[in-house]
Amino acid sequence: MDTEGLKLVAAAIAIGIGAIGPGIGIGLIGGRALEAMGRNPEAESSIRTTMILAIAFAEAVAIYALVISLIIKFT
């Protein structure tokens, strides 16, 4: 396999594996936030704020993987 093909495979693997962890994390965050909202509907707005914040942190990890794969792909 030549270097170009290996680069494509490497980029795909980087984002593919890198998206697993944040996917699980975001699912857990969303599920727990829904549970909390169901138990305490009055606190919905503050729970939503915290949930979006936590999702942003979890998602940042996937973005790092994306950046790595973009760097592999385009340089």
């Binding site: 942003a56 940042a60 973005i63 950046v67």
Partner: peptide, 13 residues
């Protein structure tokens, strides 16, 4: 780094 790449990564993706 995380501020910059989060915004850039999401929009570019």
């Amino acid at each position: 780094i995380s501020f910059a790449f989060r915004l850039f990564g999401n929009i570019f993706a």
